[in-house]
Amino acid sequence: MQTNEELLSQIDKMRKEKNAVILAHYYQVPEIQDIADFVGDSLQLSQKAAETNADIIVFAGVHFMAETAKILSPDKKVLLPDLEAGCSLADSCPPDDFKRFIEAHPGHKVVSYINCSAAVKTMSDVICTSSNAKMVVESFPQDEKLIFVPDKNLGAYINGQTGRNMVLWDGSCHVHNQLSDEKVIQLKMQNPDAKLIAHPECRGPVLALAEFIGSTAALLEYTRKDSCKRYIVATEGGIIHQMQKASPDKEFIVVPSDETCSCNDCPYMKMNTVQKLYLCLKNESPEILLDTAVIERAKEPIIRMLEISKAAKLIR
Protein backbone atom coordinates (compact mmCIF):
# COMPACT_ATOMS: atom_id res chain seq x y z
CA MET A 1 0.00 0.00 0.00
CA GLN A 2 1.53 3.28 -1.10
CA THR A 3 1.61 6.24 1.25
CA ASN A 4 -0.05 9.54 0.38
CA GLU A 5 3.38 11.04 -0.25
CA GLU A 6 4.23 8.29 -2.75
CA LEU A 7 0.86 8.65 -4.49
CA LEU A 8 1.25 12.42 -4.72
CA SER A 9 4.69 11.96 -6.27
CA GLN A 10 3.23 9.60 -8.89
CA ILE A 11 0.36 12.01 -9.58
CA ASP A 12 2.82 14.83 -10.17
CA LYS A 13 4.83 12.66 -12.56
CA MET A 14 1.79 11.42 -14.52
CA ARG A 15 0.21 14.83 -15.00
CA LYS A 16 3.40 16.04 -16.68
CA GLU A 17 3.69 12.94 -18.87
CA LYS A 18 0.03 13.07 -19.92
CA ASN A 19 -0.28 16.87 -20.24
CA ALA A 20 -3.01 16.84 -17.61
CA VAL A 21 -4.22 19.71 -15.46
CA ILE A 22 -5.71 19.17 -12.00
CA LEU A 23 -8.45 21.61 -11.02
CA ALA A 24 -9.60 21.48 -7.40
CA HIS A 25 -12.40 23.19 -5.53
CA TYR A 26 -11.74 24.91 -2.21
CA TYR A 27 -13.80 22.20 -0.47
CA GLN A 28 -11.38 19.38 -1.35
CA VAL A 29 -9.09 17.83 1.27
CA PRO A 30 -5.87 19.81 1.86
CA GLU A 31 -3.61 17.26 0.12
CA ILE A 32 -5.59 17.54 -3.11
CA GLN A 33 -5.71 21.32 -2.90
CA ASP A 34 -1.95 21.44 -2.49
CA ILE A 35 -1.14 19.28 -5.51
CA ALA A 36 -3.70 20.91 -7.82
CA ASP A 37 -2.56 23.16 -10.64
CA PHE A 38 -5.34 25.53 -9.70
CA VAL A 39 -7.64 25.84 -6.69
CA GLY A 40 -10.73 28.02 -6.87
CA ASP A 41 -14.47 28.48 -6.62
CA SER A 42 -16.99 27.57 -9.31
CA LEU A 43 -16.48 30.72 -11.41
CA GLN A 44 -12.69 30.53 -11.30
CA LEU A 45 -12.69 26.83 -12.15
CA SER A 46 -15.09 27.39 -15.05
CA GLN A 47 -12.77 30.06 -16.42
CA LYS A 48 -9.74 27.77 -16.10
CA ALA A 49 -11.57 24.89 -17.78
CA ALA A 50 -12.38 27.15 -20.72
CA GLU A 51 -8.78 28.39 -21.04
CA THR A 52 -6.67 25.26 -20.53
CA ASN A 53 -4.39 23.82 -23.20
CA ALA A 54 -4.11 20.50 -21.38
CA ASP A 55 -5.20 17.26 -23.06
CA ILE A 56 -6.76 15.95 -19.84
CA ILE A 57 -8.69 17.82 -17.17
CA VAL A 58 -8.83 16.06 -13.81
CA PHE A 59 -11.60 17.75 -11.86
CA ALA A 60 -11.27 17.31 -8.11
CA GLY A 61 -14.74 18.49 -7.23
CA VAL A 62 -18.27 17.21 -7.77
CA HIS A 63 -20.17 15.94 -10.79
CA PHE A 64 -21.78 19.17 -12.01
CA MET A 65 -18.36 20.88 -11.97
CA ALA A 66 -16.78 18.17 -14.13
CA GLU A 67 -19.78 18.37 -16.45
CA THR A 68 -19.22 22.12 -16.78
CA ALA A 69 -15.57 21.51 -17.67
CA LYS A 70 -16.62 19.05 -20.37
CA ILE A 71 -19.18 21.50 -21.75
CA LEU A 72 -16.54 24.23 -22.00
CA SER A 73 -13.79 21.92 -23.31
CA PRO A 74 -15.60 19.17 -25.25
CA ASP A 75 -12.40 18.16 -27.06
CA LYS A 76 -10.63 17.43 -23.76
CA LYS A 77 -10.82 14.24 -21.74
CA VAL A 78 -12.46 15.24 -18.45
CA LEU A 79 -12.00 12.94 -15.46
CA LEU A 80 -13.67 12.89 -12.03
CA PRO A 81 -11.97 10.81 -9.32
CA ASP A 82 -15.32 9.51 -8.04
CA LEU A 83 -18.44 9.55 -10.23
CA GLU A 84 -20.58 9.28 -7.10
CA ALA A 85 -19.38 12.71 -5.95
CA GLY A 86 -22.66 14.47 -6.55
CA CYS A 87 -24.31 17.56 -5.06
CA SER A 88 -27.39 17.83 -2.86
CA LEU A 89 -28.26 21.19 -4.42
CA ALA A 90 -28.05 19.89 -8.00
CA ASP A 91 -30.04 16.81 -6.97
CA SER A 92 -32.78 19.03 -5.53
CA CYS A 93 -33.70 20.10 -9.08
CA PRO A 94 -34.67 17.10 -11.25
CA PRO A 95 -34.75 18.19 -14.93
CA ASP A 96 -38.24 16.85 -15.66
CA ASP A 97 -39.71 18.62 -12.64
CA PHE A 98 -37.93 21.82 -13.56
CA LYS A 99 -39.23 21.66 -17.13
CA ARG A 100 -42.78 21.61 -15.75
CA PHE A 101 -41.88 24.49 -13.41
CA ILE A 102 -40.74 26.62 -16.36
CA GLU A 103 -43.91 25.77 -18.28
CA ALA A 104 -45.95 26.92 -15.27
CA HIS A 105 -44.24 30.34 -15.44
CA PRO A 106 -44.45 31.43 -19.10
CA GLY A 107 -42.66 34.61 -20.11
CA HIS A 108 -39.84 34.18 -17.59
CA LYS A 109 -36.12 34.06 -18.35
CA VAL A 110 -34.17 31.39 -16.44
CA VAL A 111 -31.10 32.22 -14.35
CA SER A 112 -29.51 29.00 -13.13
CA TYR A 113 -26.89 28.76 -10.43
CA ILE A 114 -23.99 26.70 -11.74
CA ASN A 115 -24.71 24.06 -9.07
CA CYS A 116 -27.14 22.24 -11.35
CA SER A 117 -27.03 19.39 -13.85
CA ALA A 118 -26.12 19.77 -17.54
CA ALA A 119 -29.77 18.99 -18.35
CA VAL A 120 -30.97 21.97 -16.28
CA LYS A 121 -28.35 24.18 -17.91
CA THR A 122 -29.86 23.36 -21.32
CA MET A 123 -33.12 24.93 -20.12
CA SER A 124 -31.40 28.10 -18.88
CA ASP A 125 -30.90 31.53 -20.42
CA VAL A 126 -27.79 32.28 -18.37
CA ILE A 127 -25.74 30.59 -15.65
CA CYS A 128 -24.33 32.33 -12.58
CA THR A 129 -22.10 31.55 -9.62
CA SER A 130 -22.21 33.01 -6.13
CA SER A 131 -19.37 35.31 -7.26
CA ASN A 132 -21.33 36.92 -10.06
CA ALA A 133 -25.02 36.18 -9.35
CA LYS A 134 -25.90 39.81 -8.59
CA MET A 135 -24.07 40.99 -11.70
CA VAL A 136 -25.79 38.40 -13.90
CA VAL A 137 -29.26 39.21 -12.57
CA GLU A 138 -28.65 42.94 -13.04
CA SER A 139 -27.75 42.30 -16.69
CA PHE A 140 -31.51 41.85 -17.30
CA PRO A 141 -33.88 44.84 -17.50
CA GLN A 142 -35.45 45.57 -14.12
CA ASP A 143 -38.93 44.64 -15.38
CA GLU A 144 -37.78 41.30 -16.86
CA LYS A 145 -39.52 38.34 -15.25
CA LEU A 146 -36.94 35.87 -13.93
CA ILE A 147 -36.81 32.36 -12.50
CA PHE A 148 -33.85 31.59 -10.24
CA VAL A 149 -32.82 27.96 -9.75
CA PRO A 150 -31.96 25.87 -7.78
CA ASP A 151 -30.81 27.58 -4.54
CA LYS A 152 -33.64 29.42 -2.79
CA ASN A 153 -31.28 30.95 -0.21
CA LEU A 154 -28.95 32.49 -2.79
CA GLY A 155 -31.96 33.55 -4.84
CA ALA A 156 -33.59 35.27 -1.86
CA TYR A 157 -30.33 37.02 -1.05
CA ILE A 158 -29.99 38.30 -4.63
CA ASN A 159 -33.63 39.40 -4.61
CA GLY A 160 -32.81 41.49 -1.56
CA GLN A 161 -29.65 42.91 -3.13
CA THR A 162 -31.30 43.86 -6.41
CA GLY A 163 -34.88 44.70 -5.42
CA ARG A 164 -36.12 41.93 -7.71
CA ASN A 165 -38.90 39.46 -7.15
CA MET A 166 -37.48 36.44 -8.97
CA VAL A 167 -39.49 33.23 -8.80
CA LEU A 168 -37.39 30.83 -6.73
CA TRP A 169 -37.08 27.09 -7.11
CA ASP A 170 -37.33 25.37 -3.71
CA GLY A 171 -33.83 23.87 -3.49
CA SER A 172 -30.89 24.25 -1.14
CA CYS A 173 -27.41 23.00 -0.29
CA HIS A 174 -27.66 20.78 2.78
CA VAL A 175 -24.17 21.85 3.92
CA HIS A 176 -25.16 25.51 4.12
CA ASN A 177 -28.87 25.18 4.81
CA GLN A 178 -28.30 23.21 8.00
CA LEU A 179 -26.24 25.96 9.64
CA SER A 180 -28.45 27.46 12.33
CA ASP A 181 -28.69 31.05 13.52
CA GLU A 182 -28.86 29.67 17.08
CA LYS A 183 -25.40 28.12 16.71
CA VAL A 184 -24.06 31.25 15.06
CA ILE A 185 -25.39 33.43 17.89
CA GLN A 186 -23.80 31.08 20.43
CA LEU A 187 -20.44 31.30 18.66
CA LYS A 188 -20.67 35.09 18.43
CA MET A 189 -21.39 35.33 22.15
CA GLN A 190 -18.44 33.04 22.91
CA ASN A 191 -16.16 34.95 20.52
CA PRO A 192 -17.19 38.64 20.65
CA ASP A 193 -13.97 39.74 18.91
CA ALA A 194 -14.57 37.47 15.88
CA LYS A 195 -16.29 38.57 12.68
CA LEU A 196 -18.95 36.35 11.14
CA ILE A 197 -18.47 35.76 7.41
CA ALA A 198 -21.00 33.71 5.46
CA HIS A 199 -21.67 32.18 2.07
CA PRO A 200 -24.96 33.36 0.49
CA GLU A 201 -26.19 29.75 0.28
CA CYS A 202 -26.82 30.05 4.04
CA ARG A 203 -30.33 30.79 5.29
CA GLY A 204 -31.51 34.38 5.69
CA PRO A 205 -31.26 34.54 9.52
CA VAL A 206 -27.58 33.54 9.35
CA LEU A 207 -26.86 36.08 6.61
CA ALA A 208 -28.56 38.78 8.66
CA LEU A 209 -25.99 38.23 11.42
CA ALA A 210 -22.96 38.30 9.12
CA GLU A 211 -20.45 41.15 8.87
CA PHE A 212 -19.51 39.97 5.37
CA ILE A 213 -21.32 37.82 2.80
CA GLY A 214 -19.60 36.47 -0.28
CA SER A 215 -18.61 33.56 -2.50
CA THR A 216 -15.96 31.14 -1.34
CA ALA A 217 -13.26 33.10 -3.16
CA ALA A 218 -14.62 36.39 -1.79
CA LEU A 219 -14.57 35.05 1.78
CA LEU A 220 -10.94 34.03 1.34
CA GLU A 221 -9.98 37.40 -0.10
CA TYR A 222 -11.83 39.24 2.67
CA THR A 223 -9.97 37.41 5.44
CA ARG A 224 -6.68 38.01 3.66
CA LYS A 225 -7.16 41.79 3.46
CA ASP A 226 -9.25 42.50 6.57
CA SER A 227 -7.52 43.63 9.77
CA CYS A 228 -9.53 41.40 12.13
CA LYS A 229 -7.63 38.46 13.62
CA ARG A 230 -10.50 36.02 14.28
CA TYR A 231 -13.39 34.84 12.10
CA ILE A 232 -16.47 32.66 12.44
CA VAL A 233 -16.84 31.01 9.04
CA ALA A 234 -20.30 29.93 7.85
CA THR A 235 -19.51 27.74 4.87
CA GLU A 236 -17.94 24.36 4.06
CA GLY A 237 -14.83 23.78 6.17
CA GLY A 238 -12.48 23.01 3.27
CA ILE A 239 -11.85 26.72 2.69
CA ILE A 240 -10.11 26.99 6.07
CA HIS A 241 -6.99 25.37 4.58
CA GLN A 242 -6.53 28.24 2.13
CA MET A 243 -7.46 30.85 4.76
CA GLN A 244 -4.79 29.54 7.11
CA LYS A 245 -2.20 29.46 4.33
CA ALA A 246 -2.99 33.04 3.33
CA SER A 247 -3.25 34.35 6.91
CA PRO A 248 -1.28 32.11 9.31
CA ASP A 249 -1.55 34.75 12.04
CA LYS A 250 -5.35 34.57 12.10
CA GLU A 251 -7.85 32.16 13.69
CA PHE A 252 -10.82 30.63 11.88
CA ILE A 253 -13.79 29.01 13.60
CA VAL A 254 -16.10 26.88 11.45
CA VAL A 255 -19.82 26.95 12.20
CA PRO A 256 -20.41 23.22 12.84
CA SER A 257 -23.10 21.25 11.08
CA ASP A 258 -24.32 19.67 14.31
CA GLU A 259 -23.49 19.25 17.97
CA THR A 260 -21.47 16.06 17.45
CA CYS A 261 -18.54 17.67 15.63
CA SER A 262 -16.68 20.95 15.12
CA CYS A 263 -16.69 20.67 11.33
CA ASN A 264 -18.99 21.32 8.40
CA ASP A 265 -17.90 19.05 5.56
CA CYS A 266 -19.65 18.25 2.29
CA PRO A 267 -19.65 14.44 2.12
CA TYR A 268 -19.67 14.56 -1.69
CA MET A 269 -16.62 16.82 -1.94
CA LYS A 270 -14.77 14.63 0.51
CA MET A 271 -15.44 11.48 -1.56
CA ASN A 272 -12.41 12.45 -3.67
CA THR A 273 -9.24 11.12 -2.06
CA VAL A 274 -5.56 11.08 -3.00
CA GLN A 275 -5.88 7.36 -3.81
CA LYS A 276 -8.84 7.99 -6.14
CA LEU A 277 -7.06 10.92 -7.76
CA TYR A 278 -4.05 8.70 -8.44
CA LEU A 279 -6.15 5.89 -9.94
CA CYS A 280 -8.20 8.36 -11.97
CA LEU A 281 -5.10 9.79 -13.63
CA LYS A 282 -3.41 6.42 -14.02
CA ASN A 283 -6.42 4.73 -15.68
CA GLU A 284 -7.83 7.90 -17.27
CA SER A 285 -11.22 7.09 -15.82
CA PRO A 286 -13.93 7.67 -14.71
CA GLU A 287 -14.51 9.96 -17.67
CA ILE A 288 -17.30 12.50 -18.03
CA LEU A 289 -19.25 11.87 -21.24
CA LEU A 290 -22.08 14.09 -22.48
CA ASP A 291 -24.24 14.06 -25.58
CA THR A 292 -23.10 16.57 -28.22
CA ALA A 293 -26.52 18.24 -28.32
CA VAL A 294 -26.47 18.71 -24.54
CA ILE A 295 -22.99 20.21 -24.69
CA GLU A 296 -23.97 22.66 -27.44
CA ARG A 297 -27.15 23.82 -25.68
CA ALA A 298 -25.68 23.96 -22.18
CA LYS A 299 -22.63 25.88 -23.36
CA GLU A 300 -24.64 28.93 -24.50
CA PRO A 301 -25.77 30.12 -21.02
CA ILE A 302 -22.34 29.38 -19.52
CA ILE A 303 -20.58 31.43 -22.19
CA ARG A 304 -23.04 34.24 -21.59
CA MET A 305 -22.09 34.20 -17.90
CA LEU A 306 -18.37 34.27 -18.69
CA GLU A 307 -18.89 37.17 -21.10
CA ILE A 308 -20.82 39.15 -18.47
CA SER A 309 -18.05 38.55 -15.92
CA LYS A 310 -15.34 39.50 -18.42
CA ALA A 311 -17.14 42.68 -19.42
CA ALA A 312 -17.59 43.72 -15.79
CA LYS A 313 -13.89 43.12 -15.12
CA LEU A 314 -12.91 45.28 -18.10
CA ILE A 315 -15.20 48.08 -16.91
CA ARG A 316 -13.62 48.01 -13.45
Rank of each mutant, 00 (worst) to 15 (best):
E31S: 15
I32R: 10
I32Y: 06
I35R: 00
F38Y: 02
V39W: 05
V39A: 03
V39M: 03
G40E: 06
G40F: 12
D41S: 00
D41Y: 01
D41A: 05
Q44K: 04
S46M: 11
Q47N: 05
A50E: 15
E51W: 06
E51M: 09
N53Q: 15
N53L: 06
A54Q: 01
A54W: 02
D55F: 03
I56P: 02
V58D: 07
F59S: 11
A60C: 14
G61L: 00
H63T: 05
F64Y: 04
M65K: 13
A69H: 02
A69D: 05
I71S: 14
L72F: 10
S73R: 11
D75Q: 14
D75G: 10
V78R: 01
L79F: 01
L79N: 09
P81A: 15
P81T: 11
D82A: 12
E84P: 05
E84R: 11
A85Y: 12
C87I: 01
L89H: 11
D91R: 11
C93F: 13
C93T: 14
C93G: 12
D97H: 12
F98R: 00
F98Y: 07
K99V: 11
F101H: 05
I102Q: 06
I102E: 07
I102F: 08
E103L: 08
E103Q: 11
E103T: 08
H105S: 09
P106D: 07
G107R: 05
G107I: 07
G107E: 06
H108F: 03
K109M: 06
V111N: 03
Y113L: 10
I114P: 14
I114V: 15
N115A: 03
N115L: 04
C116T: 13
S117Q: 09
A119H: 09
A119R: 08
K121T: 02
T122A: 13
T122M: 15
S124V: 13
D125Y: 13
D125I: 15
I127S: 05
C128E: 15
T129A: 09
T129C: 11
S130F: 14
S130M: 14
S130C: 14
S131T: 02
A133I: 14
K134Y: 11
M135H: 05
V136N: 04
V136I: 04
V137Q: 03
V137C: 04
V137R: 03
F140H: 01
P141S: 06
Q142A: 15
Q142R: 12
Q142I: 15
D143Y: 11
K145Q: 15
I147A: 01
F148D: 04
F148K: 02
V149F: 08
V149N: 06
D151Q: 08
L154H: 07
L154T: 08
Y157C: 02
Y157T: 00
Y157F: 04
Y157I: 04
N159F: 12
G160A: 01
G160M: 00
